[in-house]
Design a protein around this nucleic acid. Structure first.
Lengths: 146, 146
DNA sequence: ATTGCTTACTTGCATAAACAACCTATAATT
DNA sequence: AATTATAGGTTGTTTATGCAAGTAAGCAAT
């Protein structure tokens, strides 16, 4: 890419993240369809907790590419909804370890199911090899800018 | 993609739009560096107006993949900043035609320049052919879900 | 023990997003 | 012409984001 790079329509849609916003809107819709009243952002936090509980907020921030204030507030909301609890780390009292409540664990199966559904809908007709390339490009862009 | 599609780390980052959020953060930063105090979202509206003035809010919504309320508020803010004005369409009195002010037009050159800079930074080391593939995949995903 | 640096999290402020409900102007149907 | 449907915008509510500034706990090295 040289100095005279022009802002093409295609690049604009790249910048606008139209694909990823479409995906998260669809995820939201698919969650709602099974009466899962959580946002796509809340889902992304729960996703990592479904894989492993007791993560710190900083770890969640790293996993989900959000800043710490965003995590603070997402956890506030999830705590208010009774899905997670903060447990103060005895080893390092600066940290909160985030655990699921019984309620939060119950959502796991349908939450995961609706996410796979969303993936299938998104990737219909997409070639596996091309998808790999696309993911590598996106990763490269992220590395370039982070 | 079959029924048993699993949510991979890679797909997660696809869903989270980490590349596109990185791009718009960088754009924001690059704008700030030349004292352009507009947000990346405001930039995206101005971009289309720099190409053609007198667009309706609905047209801007279509171009930028946002809903109408989002555009209403973005235009409110841009109008408050003295960058654009709403002109009621005499032909169809439901529509507002959006025009740049002198102030808004002045930003064009540096606004475009900082955007190309952002593109160059993002795509450093990215193969042109792969980029095309990635854009096609993103477009396909969007078409699948829209 | 004190000083200074870093890390984990929170708060404040401004902006933006989605969705639903609404108003008004135009278009379509009868 | 009157009725209904649709299209363009706005408002309300809730949630989320970025950045800057703050608090408090841990760490390092005198």
């Amino acid at each position: 890419m040289n100095e005279s790079t022009v802002i093409s329509e295609e690049f604009f849609s790249f910048l606008s993240g139209k694909a990823s916003t479409a995906i998260s809107r669809r995820l939201q819709r698919n969650l709602k369809e099974v009466k899962l009243n959580i946002t796509a952002e809340q889902w992304s936090i729960l996703y990592y907790l479904w894989l492993e509980e007791g993560l710190t907020q900083q770890e969640l921030a790293n996993f989900t590419f959000r800043d710490k204030p965003s995590i603070t507030r997402l956890i506030n909301n999830l705590e208010r909804l009774g899905m997670v609890i903060r447990v103060n780390d005895k080893q390092d009292r600066r940290s909160n370890l985030i655990y699921l409540t019984k309620e939060g664990r119950k959502l796991r199966e349908s939450g995961m199911k609706q996410a796979s559904l969303t993936i299938r809908e998104s990737l219909e007709g997409v070639d596996e090899t091309d998808l790999k390339i696309a993911q590598e490009i996106l990763e490269r862009v992220f590395q370039n800018l982070k």
